[in-house]
């Protein structure tokens, strides 16, 4: 099985590290796929990733056909999840946001991510797991991403499919 990852704009991981982590390719937002900050503007590309905190911006991105939305606050409003259900938009869980921090802050983020997954399941929204790392300290191996996904409540097969097929699909739009 081939695994893929998505990282934050402005960060290009070392190709040697990418290979060691077990990923076939790590896609960089803004380079491999257009990137939109949910707080501002719009993009003209057909495939783009939207990341941010605001629900309204994400709603607009889904309406404009975003390939994926990345809720950086690890929260998603129910209406956004409901709206994403009928679209092709995938909700990406940014794992680097969960592993950063320490103690109660991290516990709060883990709780939020679990809740995010629960909402996605409830409304039938497609979800996937990406590191969305901003630097090398935020990167993880594919094994670690899968284990974190399982910790959040995904099954083994769901986690593996998300890290392999779904992550590639977001960027290329084609099934391998």
């Amino acid at each position: 099985m081939r695994y893929y990852d998505l990282v934050a704009p402005g960060f290009e991981p070392d190709p040697g590290l990418v290979g060691r982590l077990g990923f076939e390719k790590v896609f960089s937002c803004g380079k491999d796929i257009a990137f939109l900050d949910s707080d501002s503007g719009a993009v003209s590309e057909s495939r783009f990733v939207c990341a941010g905190y605001k629900g309204n911006g994400m709603m607009a991105a889904i309406r404009n056909g975003a390939s994926a939305i990345v809720p950086l606050g690890l929260e998603i409003e129910r209406k956004v999840a409901e709206y994403a259900e009928g679209s092709e938009t995938v909700v990406c869980v940014p794992v680097s946001r969960i592993i950063s921090g320490f103690g109660f802050n991290r516990l709060r983020n883990i709780g939020r991510a679990k809740s995010l997954l629960r909402v996605c399941r409830k409304y039938g929204t497609k979800f996937t797991f990406v590191t969305f790392a901003e630097n090398a300290f935020g990167m993880l191996s594919y094994m670690q991403v899968i284990e974190i996904a399982k910790m959040l409540g995904a099954s083994e097969s769901e986690a593996r499919a998300a890290v392999s097929i779904a992550n590639r699909l977001i960027v290329t739009g084609e099934i391998q």
Partner: peptide
């Protein structure tokens, strides 16, 4: 010191 650990295989 801030750092990170990657599990490469088991």
């Amino acid at each position: 010191q801030n750092t990170a650990f990657y599990t490469l295989g088991s």
